[in-house]
Design a protein around this nucleic acid. Structure first.
Length: 620
DNA sequence: TTAGGGTTAG
């Protein structure tokens, strides 16, 4: 590499003595060969030092060349001060040069609005933007969501007669769409005499981004009527919009459109389709398409894994992850969040720990999504110590981090710790949300903090303007019920601002079971029976009540209830738990005899039960 | 040197 820090004349060898043309081309060649902005600046200063009396024309050429090189080279981040200082030295910068610089800010990691400085500079110099300038400047406004500035540019577009330019029209629609000003976007669209696929797609995209999914679809139908054929990009936008609409029939029609119009089933289209089928509740079609995909990228794997998780198919999702590993596809943060979610729901602590060590080995930061997913996994898998460790080591905590940790403490019976954490939130500027309050109320319920629970329940609306939902009311019933305040719980339900459902009455019924209160239990049971539509959802309530009768020696009532269950074909759906042994998650249901070692399992269970009854310490 | 730049996470 050349020594450019202390350049010698031979290393640059710019021929300053030859004729003008050859000297100019030598300088340009040297500047063009620069690999960084630093090098460019060094050569510039070298030229100034060694030839302070360059002819005016050559000087201007040097400035123009430096500006265009520093602006157009992708690894040269535009240095706004430097470029601006060079611009000031130029007598007549051309509109082309302005365009190059303005464009460079759209591709840099600097504030795109810097482009506007150059645009106003251009106006000061008495120049007028051309058909390239406006798309570039509008793009800068789009990237910065600068509605007011963009509107001003729009007025310049009208004044300077560029409203008929399709590139300008399309960028205007995109700009208004990004800023959420869909009325303006639609107006530009309506007033344009010419429209192409980009115009239609941009308008559709605008509506979809705003969440106006049906309207976006309606524009697509209008586009079809206008005889414009969609391309792959249009279809991806429509399919993902359809996924959000959860409309499988529409999804199938869009799928057919791709076939009928001979579009490419590229990786984007396939990913969008897989995601759509999963979100619309058809994992079979999603898996079929996924298996047929000729080319898969990380998004394909993530879409299928996360989609299966959304469907509650954690084991299948885990198997897909294993397949992904066997094909040597490197998981990214999104995959890991999904896998941790699986571990949390399957209770597979060992696999969760493996993911944690993978994260550490690969230097992935345990912040944000990843940190929260790790925390969730440890709390749900019952390792509160590790969960606390993860929490304490997270640098950037957000409302999800706090909610997770509070919930962790709540379900582990550490109510004081949960409430202490909750009290820390406002101090560091994190506002609790509805789920945070659910965790707080759970903590109070699990630890018998009736007074605190009520205070928090009131503060939800009073302090944070969060309207309590059914789940919060359910927690309050649970809180009173667990504390044995059964009549209070019954009154609470009757005075609620929302209509109680079977689940809320069910929470009270469970408390009646715990505290052996047959009278209230009987009343509540009748309520549950009336409230719940489907008999099959009442199984838990019937069993609870029948057990309550039995525990109070009212066997005749218990028998009567069981008889009703039989007549109405109400069957108890078996509770399910899972255990992880040697990386395999085993699920168990009551009466399940499908495991090979069923005999040994039940024998051990029997022994453990006896020990537990005697309060023995169990060592296996 | 032009425009839409598309798919996956609470």
């Amino acid at each position: 590499m050349e020594n450019i820090i202390t350049p010698s004349p031979s290393s640059y060898s710019i021929s300053l003595t030859h004729d003008t043309d050859s000297r100019n081309s030598s300088i340009i060649h040297k500047l063009e060969s620069c690999k960084s902005l630093k090098e460019l600046k060094q050569i510039h200063s070298y030229i100034i030092k060694t030839s302070p009396t360059l002819p005016h024309q050559t000087q201007q050429l040097v400035y123009t060349t430096i500006i265009s090189i520093s602006a157009r080279t992708s690894n040269h981040v535009p240095d706004i001060t430097y470029i601006h200082s060079l611009f000031n030295k130029l007598e007549n910068p051309t509109i082309d040069l302005y365009n190059i610089v303005i464009r460079s800010f759209n591709h840099s990691n600097q504030n795109p609005l810097f482009a506007l400085l150059f645009y106003s500079d251009l106006l000061v110099k008495g120049l007028i933007g051309d058909s390239f300038t406006y798309p570039y400047v509008l793009k800068s406004c789009t990237l910065s969501y600068a509605l007011r500035e963009g509107e001003q540019i729009h007025s310049h577009v009208i004044k300077n007669g560029f409203v008929l330019n399709l590139y300008v029209v399309n960028t205007l629609i995109s700009f208004y769409g990004a800023c959420g000003a869909m009325e303006n976007a639609q107006k530009v669209f309506d007033e344009s005499p010419e429209r192409d696929l980009v115009t239609w797609t941009t308008l559709i995209q605008g509506y979809v981004k705003r969440g106006c999914l049906e309207k976006g679809m309606q524009v697509f139908y209008e586009m079809c009527e206008a005889g414009v054929r969609a391309d792959e990009m249009t279809m991806v936008i429509l399919i993902s919009s359809c996924a959000k609409l959860r409309d499988i029939n529409l999804g199938i029609k869009l799928h057919k459109y791709i076939y009928d119009h001979d579009l490419n089933f590229d990786v984007y289209i396939c990913n969008a389709l897989v995601d759509m089928y999963l979100k619309c509740g058809n994992p079979t079609l999603a898996i079929k398409l996924f298996n047929k995909m000729p080319l898969k990228n990380i998004v394909s794997w993530n879409s299928i894994i996360l989609g299966l998780i959304q469907q509650g198919k954690f084991k299948i999702a885990m198997n897909v992850f294993k397949k992904m590993q066997s094909q040597k596809v490197k998981p990214d943060n999104i995959t890991l969040v999904g896998v941790l979610n699986c571990c949390a729901n399957l209770g597979t602590l060992k696999q969760g720990k493996w993911v944690h060590s993978y994260i550490n080995k690969n230097g992935i930061k345990t912040d944000g999504f990843i940190g929260n997913a790790l925390l969730d996994m440890y709390t749900k898998c019952g390792d509160i110590k590790k969960a606390t460790y993860v929490f304490n080591h997270m640098k950037h905590k957000d409302v999800y981090t706090y909610t997770n940790m509070i919930l962790g403490f709540a379900i582990h019976g550490e109510g004081q710790k949960a409430l202490k954490l909750f009290s820390e939130m406002p101090k560091i500027g994190i506002t609790p949300n509805d789920v945070t309050y659910l965790a707080v109320l759970m903590a109070c319920a699990h630890c018998g903090f009736v007074k605190e629970g009520f205070n928090h329940f009131v503060n939800m609306l009073k302090v944070h303007n969060i309207k309590p939902q059914k789940e919060h009311y359910g927690c309050m019933v649970d809180l009173l019920g667990r504390a044995g305040l059964l009549s209070e719980a019954e009154d609470f339900i009757r005075n609620m601002n929302i209509e109680p459902d079977g689940l809320i009455w069910g929470a009270l019924l469970a408390a009646c079971g715990t505290h052996k209160n047959v009278e209230i239990g009987k009343r509540v049971m009748e309520k549950v029976d009336k409230m719940m539509d489907k008999d099959k959802d009442k199984d838990g309530a019937f069993i609870l009540m029948s057990n309550l009768y039995s525990s109070e020696n009212r066997f005749r009532d218990a028998f009567k209830l069981r008889k009703i269950m039989k007549e109405r074909k109400i069957k108890k759906s078996p509770g399910c738990s899972s255990i992880e042994v040697d990386d395999v998650a085993y699920e168990f249901r009551k009466g399940d005899k499908s495991h090979q070692q069923t005999k040994e399992i039940y024998m051990l269970l029997d022994i453990m039960g006896k020990h537990l009854k005697n309060n023995d310490q169990i060592i296996i």
